[in-house]
Lab assay of single mutants.
Amino acid sequence: SSGGSSILDRAVIEHNLLSASKLYNNITFEELGALLEIPAAKAEKIASQMITEGRMNGFIDQIDGIVHFETR
């Protein structure tokens, strides 16, 4: 797709992000992006959206560029 990722790509990214949230206590956007094979800024945006929508527990430290995952 030309304008970003398809629905399937997005679903795969979100699935992998949720998997990462179970493996890590926290991770930088750079590391997360590398893990998900997407730019760091996109990793931040998707993580932020999932947390806001209540689909993933955690919070974002924008100063240090880190996602902190919280286990249920």
Rank of each mutant, 00 (worst) to 15 (best):
A34I: 11
I27Q: 03
E70V: 10
K42S: 15
E37P: 02
S21Y: 04
E30D: 09
M50T: 01
S6C: 07
D64Q: 15
R72F: 13
N57H: 13
G58H: 02
I60Y: 02
H68N: 06
I27N: 00
V67M: 10
I60G: 01
I46M: 08
I13H: 05
H15D: 10
R55T: 08
S2M: 12
L35V: 06
K45E: 15
G65R: 12
L32I: 03
S5N: 10
I7P: 12
K45S: 14
R10T: 13
G58T: 00
S6G: 11
D9P: 06
I51W: 02
V12P: 06
E31Y: 06
G3R: 03
I27R: 04
E70L: 10
V67F: 04
E30I: 12
M50F: 05
Y24K: 04
G65V: 03
E14K: 03
Q62R: 13
L35S: 02
E37A: 14
R55L: 09
I60Q: 01
L35F: 09
I46Q: 01
A43N: 01
L18K: 05
I66K: 10
S19I: 14
L36S: 02
A40E: 04
E53P: 01
H68Q: 04
K45H: 13
P39W: 03
I27H: 01
R10I: 15
T28P: 04
K22G: 06
A41Q: 10
E44H: 13
E14R: 03
S5G: 12
E37D: 15
Q49S: 08
K45C: 06
K22D: 05
E44P: 01
A40L: 05
R10S: 11
R10F: 13
G33V: 04
I27Y: 04
N57G: 10
E70G: 12
G54A: 04
K22R: 10
E14S: 03
L23P: 03
S2C: 07
M56F: 11
M56S: 00
S1A: 14
E31W: 05
G3F: 07
R10L: 15
E31P: 00
I63N: 09
I66P: 01
E30C: 05
G33C: 03
F69L: 03
H15E: 15
T52D: 15
A11G: 09
S19G: 10
M50D: 00
H15C: 07
T28D: 03
S1H: 12
I63W: 07
G58W: 09
Q49V: 07
N26Q: 14
L23D: 06
E44F: 13
L17K: 00
A20N: 05
H68K: 05
A47M: 07
L32F: 03
I13M: 07
L35Q: 03
I63C: 07
I63M: 08
R72W: 13
I38Y: 01
S48C: 07
S2A: 11
S19V: 15
L32C: 01
L32Q: 00
K22C: 07
R10C: 06
D9V: 06
I46A: 04
S19N: 14
Y24A: 04
P39V: 04
N16L: 14
F59G: 03
N57W: 11
I27G: 00
T52N: 14
L23I: 13
I63P: 05
G54C: 05
G54S: 04
A20R: 03
Q49E: 15
S2W: 06
I66S: 11
D64W: 12
S6L: 10
F59E: 08
E37L: 11
P39A: 06
G3Y: 06
N25E: 11
L17S: 01
K42D: 15
G3V: 14
Q49G: 07
I60N: 00
R55I: 09
Q49K: 07
T52L: 13
T52P: 00
V12R: 14
T71V: 10
S19R: 14
H68A: 04
N26M: 15
M56Y: 03
L18P: 01
G3H: 12
M56T: 02
G54W: 03
L17I: 14
E53F: 04
S6Y: 08
H68D: 04
E70D: 12
V12T: 14
F59Q: 06
S5E: 14
L36C: 04
E53R: 03
L8I: 13
E14P: 01
A20T: 08
N25A: 12
K42G: 07
H68E: 04
G54Q: 05
V12L: 09
T71F: 09
